[in-house]
Design a protein around this nucleic acid. Structure first.
Lengths: 346, 346
DNA sequence: CTGAAAGCGCTTACAG
DNA sequence: CTGAAAGCGCTTACAG
């Protein structure tokens, strides 16, 4: 692996100075056509690839941005990653993708590393601390040391532009859908209750109950703690073994709902006859499940695109209001898992 | 956003030279304990984050690697991304993830950009050209200008370490499974037939037919061309409308199989009674489909981990044989979509 | 153990 | 239009 050619190599071969070669190749400054042609030819022969590290050093800014999400294997985040990449790459930016696994220490380490890379900005879905606030350490990074956009999760008190979906409204709508079908005991499986997105969804759920004068029973809301299939299984199982189990179940995350399906199958229950189900985030296979799954679909791709757009805007003219909060609408996609009207008391 | 502190700021505050500050913080060279303490304290006060660009410039090598996959929204690739990140991050490396969308020009642009970032290596799932070889342009990059590991797809003639799964054997096994259940007309939906992985799978399919003296009927093998849900739908529809349609269908990709399910549902056919189905790559919801889906499961995570491991090894001691080809075993997970034994002639 | 100086590969005033 | 020189923030011989 021999070293790549430098501007000096190109200049030498073209018989010009490094400065001129740089001007010709970098597209800045004026260069005579003949000179430029010689330089371009030399660059091609040498297979010249400009060193962006050197450029960034000199310009004291990079065209790299960081993207921190919880778990790239969750299709919701995968779509965000794709949207962000697509949006920024057109502007010559590169993205470093990081995965926190919902661990706050990982997030801090990753954010810190992005700073070392002198990224021009960070788009992050922040991990919740126990109190629901940013950890002190990340607060010292986001917004103050690097341009930041929050995605998927708002943080109270943080003065940082944020893109989320309308968690409260969507959960309210989903719950209301259950109620209209006659459900009175509605359970919820929450993935890590300190996450802002989860707080909003539970809030929406409570509102719908309140609207219809159904008493909120906190034993019907289970925090899965971890946000994965296994945790969804455990939490759902707990609800199914409740003294008076729910007839409808709202599962507030993609991965958790697979666990819920596992638990329901294990108990030999039928969907929606024995237990109706609504999941969060659509996925390709959802219409093809044994009972096609009703879900709240968040506009993941749009969230990513808009977050990227805002960050790019901040990088160029800094004119974004730090308290900007864009809330995108989610959609309740009704399939059969919630369809059955129930009768009698539950 | 004020500029981040530099080593010079730290040195000044600690009353030492830049060189000494660098030694204390960078962990190279010897520094007296008292001096080190002063420097560490100063760094903390200033919230010092070393500039890795500057370090890379000086050392003429980065701790960044590039990862190029076709589509990060495909769970197969998402798992690879996660595995690679997890593996390299422990060694202080950062990864730049790129998405080609199966477009060869995109791949070239991305690889070129990774070179500009002076990545220490690239792990890539190379896009096939029409001839199944590397494009001339990418061949000039992979292996010669930057350490490279191929993942998921081998390229004939390339002297580059490669990690794949055993596509031939797995397809053979899957096809044999169909044959043993009595199927004689077995269709295959291929995603872009020039992809090395697809060629292997079709080869395995042919071998199984040959073994059992079933004539290969090329009209039963349809190239979906694109590798997405819509393409899978179109290709499957074509097969279902065949003059003598298959009774068993092998769908060679994750996304295509969703399209296949759409086509099958549209025709009102039952799985496995009317058409038995085997997909490629497992996914969370597969056991919960209307008819739980039999799949060939590739060890995606292991592929990513091993690719990362090989690349790291190449970076350190360069002792990896360029013709190394590690082939991991896939597993046929039998669920109900293939289960039905068929009788009579088809 | 510590410091002065050179240099990684660019870009950018400053001259001409 | 072109070039010489300085400098981005580190690391690394080289002295001491």
């Amino acid at each position: 692996m021999r070293a790549l050619a430098t501007l000096e190599d190109v200049a030498q071969r073209a018989g010009t100075s490094v400065a001129t070669a740089g001007r010709a190749l970098g597209g800045y400054g004026k260069v005579a056509v003949a000179t430029r042609n010689r330089i371009v030819a030399a660059a091609r022969q040498l297979n010249y690839h400009p060193n962006v590290l050197a450029r960034s050093m000199k310009k004291r800014s990079t065209a790299t941005i960081g993207l921190i999400v919880a778990n790239i294997c969750n299709p919701f985040f995968a779509r965000i990653v794709r949207a962000v990449e697509t949006a920024v790459i057109r502007h010559g930016n590169t993205v470093i993708v990081c995965d926190t696994d919902e661990n706050i220490q990982n997030e801090l380490d990753l954010a810190s590393r992005l700073l070392e890379h002198r990224v021009g900005g960070i788009i992050v879905s922040p991990t919740a601390s126990e109190t629901g606030e940013l950890s002190r350490a990340t607060r010292e990074i986001y917004g103050s040391r690097v341009l930041t956009v929050f995605i998927d999760r708002a943080v109270k008190g943080a003065k940082i532009p944020t893109i989320t979906s309308d968690n409260v409204t969507a959960a309210e709508e989903a719950t209301r859908h259950f109620i209209q079908l006659g459900h009175k005991r509605i359970g919820a499986v929450v993935g890590r209750s300190t996450l802002d997105s989860m707080i909003g969804r539970v809030e929406g759920y409570r509102r719908a109950l309140l609207e219809h004068r159904i008493t909120f029973d906190k034993s019907l809301v289970v925090d899965a703690v971890d946000v994965d299939v296994e945790a969804g299984y455990r939490a759902t199982k707990k609800l199914l073994e409740h003294r008076r189990p729910p007839t409808g179940l709202l599962v507030l995350n993609n991965l958790l709902v697979i666990g819920a399906l596992n638990a329901i199958r294990e108990k030999g229950l039928l969907i929606p006859e024995d237990i109706a189900l609504i999941g969060w985030d659509d996925f390709d296979a959802a219409p093809h499940l044994q009972t096609p799954l009703t879900v709240v679909e968040q506009p993941a791709y749009a969230m990513g695109s808009i977050a990227a757009e805002q960050l790019l805007k901040m990088r160029s003219d800094e004119s974004v209001d730090p308290s900007l909060h864009i809330v995108l609408k989610s959609t309740l996609i009704i399939r059969e898992s919630s369809e059955k009207r129930i009768s009698g008391k539950s």
